[in-house]
Design a protein around this nucleic acid. Structure first.
Length: 630
RNA sequence: CGGGACGUGGCUCAGCCUGGUAGAGCGCACCCUUGGGGUGGGUGAGGUCGCUAGUUCGAAUCUAGUCGUCCCGACCA
């Protein structure tokens, strides 16, 4: 049993101005955390207690499938050099030198260290599979720490790595993690959704993010009643059919004078058509593969030539750069300059279109950006790439497939074409899904309308493949005595994000009931699931009764905080709510009837309970809430 | 890294435009009061006005630089 009068719980009536999101304000006001610097927070008593409870749950569940390690946060350059990430991590990694001048970094994640261990210790297929995990502090030199504990430079992460003999084994390790993750987040009282995620340039065959819907989130996810859920970076939809326009004239592309009609809105108004009858063009210069190494660090890699990437979509659709990067094999896209538009697309902004771009693409004479080697690489990515002089990667979105008689820019100032029909009037390098889904579109499984919302990523499971084991030379002998590279998976959970998400989620619910700046934590992760508030400690009987109740609860294995401070009842009620405790027992007036008041803040229900039945009652409701959360 | 804002007791902020040696509320300490939703009253402590340089007789206030923090964007294994 803890006595509030002896603890350091510095609650604040007002939140510091720097705090913006609800969880940040509340964590500060409740005395959970204090800021030390940008993205650096000290966890005080309550904060640390909540974190420890989360860690305990994560550890308990992870121990069902894996083995916990403790690894150095300080890593020598060499191991990161081997995986290629010393350069690849760019400025996101903290780097330093020791007294001898040797270079080190503060690890952002532990693929390298784990793989080093695997490489030097694993010899035989008999030792596989392995699942190794750790719950440790990670460091990232975030370009922009923000939102309290949501995006920080030093944080706790549970990360796990699996080593398997083959893909079937990896599938199993991955599935184990998925099961355990669901248990973890459920036990932590989160309402979460597992979504398909972009596997990025890392390749890999599968990746799921565990997301919690909240406006404080930085990701957008699309989900529907059918159970479909995906990051918008990856989400698709079944588009309802669009009626094509009737062909005019001879049905072939017809040049139309459209002076000053440079925007979709202008063009559709001019032709009297819907935006879905129009072809939109977005043109980028893309950085191939990994981004060039940033200045300010020890090595500079020559920047590879930029790759022109042009996408055509339906006028009412938005390009999704993540998807575009994935299909174009680029890491980063920036809009083309007017000069670049002229060179790579062949027209001025506002009048760009697909007709004629094919010639640009296959004409080898315009510029020397694509080396032969570069070209081969691109051909490696695509099948059906024109064999000669590839210049511009032209991607047509799936939304244009099978359409006919569209309006599009003519690559000529103040002119558009009508009667443009894809595949007849132009041939893209590739047809792919490169657009973002919109709210309300039918999901790809059952056609239920998609809902798009902001969410926080609390966990990520990822089939890594052979990237690290191969780069770092890990291998074991298989049944036939042949050297085999183990296949890996990596699985992360942001510990603080669980706390943050729980608060955001709850604060959102309270706000919906017109109680701003209020929240209640799930009992499983609350620093104290129960607070016993003695309304007036100067009345000996009240204090004695409060102590007795608290002691009994404590004896029953419930973490209880006795508020024995000589403060006014109102102050203590407010503080109990501020620290997010889900159950409050008020020992006061009703003691004369032998009763205390039990408030369940999750349901907002108050019960007067006979004092001798309090423990039993609490045990019931607490476990009930845990089950409900489950 | 681009754009914006802010740095004045522990917290929230005023004062700055129009230079003249710093204020309020909350919090804190003590006394009285009150005692189921931040009670009322009194007394008091606490600030080299982020830092550095400059202008000036004189700088919280004007100028330049610098550091820090937050927000939007970019970025985010």
């Amino acid at each position: 049993m803890h006595r509030w009068s002896q603890l350091f719980i510095p609650t604040l009536r007002e939140a510091p101005t720097d705090a913006e999101v609800a969880s940040h304000k509340l964590l500060l006001r409740a005395g959970y955390i204090r800021q030390l610097g940008a993205g650096l927070y000290s966890y005080l008593f309550l904060g640390n207690r909540a974190i420890n409870k989360i860690v305990a749950i994560v550890r308990e569940e992870m121990d069902m499938i894996g083995q916990e390690f403790y690894l150095p946060a300080l890593n020598p350059r060499e191991v990161w050099e081997e995986s290629g990430r010393w350069a690849g991590m760019g400025q996101n990694m903290f780097r330093l030198k020791d007294r001898k001048g040797a270079e080190l970094c503060l690890a952002m994640t532990h693929e390298e260290v784990m793989t080093t261990i695997a490489r030097s210790e694993l010899r035989s297929y008999k030792q596989l599979p392995q699942i190794w995990y750790q719950i440790q502090t990670k460091f990232r030199d975030e370009p922009r720490p923000k939102s309290g504990l949501l995006r920080v430079r030093q944080f706790l992460m549970k990360d796990a790595y699996s080593f398997d003999m083959d893909e079937a084994g990896l599938d199993e390790s991955y599935a184990k993690h998925e099961r355990v993750y669901r248990r973890i987040f459920t036990r932590c009282g989160l309402e979460f959704v597992a979504v398909e995620a972009d596997s990025g340039a890392m390749g890999g065959s599968g990746s799921q993010e565990f997301m919690v819907y909240t406006d404080a989130g930085e990701d957008l996810i699309a989900s529907s009643a059918s159970g479909y859920a995906a990051n918008v970076e990856k989400a698709t939809s079944k588009l309802p059919a669009v009626e094509d326009l009737a062909a005019s004239g001879d049905g072939l592309p017809e040049l139309v004078h459209t002076p000053g009609k440079a925007s979709i809105a202008d063009v559709t108004a001019f032709f009297g058509i819907a935006a879905s009858q129009d072809i939109k063009c977005v043109a980028f210069m893309g950085t191939p593969g990994l981004p060039p190494f940033q200045a300010g660090t020890s090595r500079v890699v020559q920047a590879p030539p930029l790759r022109p990437v042009v996408a055509f979509l339906r006028g009412d659709h938005q390009v999704n750069e993540t998807k575009l990067n994935a299909v174009a094999g680029t890491a980063e896209l920036r809009p083309m300059t007017p000069e670049e538009l002229e060179i790579h697309v062949g027209g001025p902004a506002g009048y760009l279109g697909p007709v004629g771009v094919a010639e640009v693409m296959t004409n080898g004479s315009l510029n020397g950006l694509n080396s032969g080697k570069e070209l081969n690489k691109i051909k490696g990515i695509f099948r059906d790439v024109p064999t000669e002089g590839l210049k511009t990667i032209v991607i047509m979105d799936l939304g244009l497939q099978g359409r006919a008689n569209l309006v599009a820019g003519a690559n000529k100032l103040n002119y558009h074409f009508r009667n443009v029909t894809p595949m007849r009037d132009f041939k893209p390098t590739l047809v792919a899904d490169v657009r973002s889904v919109n709210e309300g579109e039918p999901d790809p499984i059952a056609g239920e309308p998609l809902r798009i919302g902001k969410a926080v990523e609390v966990g990520h499971i990822f089939k890594l493949g052979y990237k690290y084991s191969k780069a770092m030379g890990a291998s074991v002998l298989n049944r036939d005595g042949k050297e085999t590279t183990p296949i890996m998976g990596s699985y992360g959970i942001g510990i603080e994000r669980i706390l943050t998400a729980a608060i955001e989620q709850s604060a959102g619910r309270f706000a919906a009931r017109n109680q701003p700046d209020a929240y209640a934590l799930p009992p499983s992760i609350a620093p104290f699931p129960v607070v016993v508030t003695v309304t007036n400690v100067r009345e000996q009987e009240l204090l004695a009764a409060g102590e007795k109740v608290a002691q009994q609860l404590s004896d029953a294995g419930i973490d209880v905080l006795l508020d024995d401070r000589d403060e006014r009842a109102g102050v203590k009620f407010n503080d109990a709510e501020l620290i997010g405790t889900p159950f409050r027992i008020a020992v006061g007036k009703k003691l004369s009837e032998g009763k205390v008041e039990v408030l369940n803040r999750l349901t907002n229900q108050t019960d007067d309970i006979a004092i001798e039945k309090v423990v039993q009652h609490l045990k019931t409701v607490v476990s009930c809430e845990l089950l409900v959360a489950g």
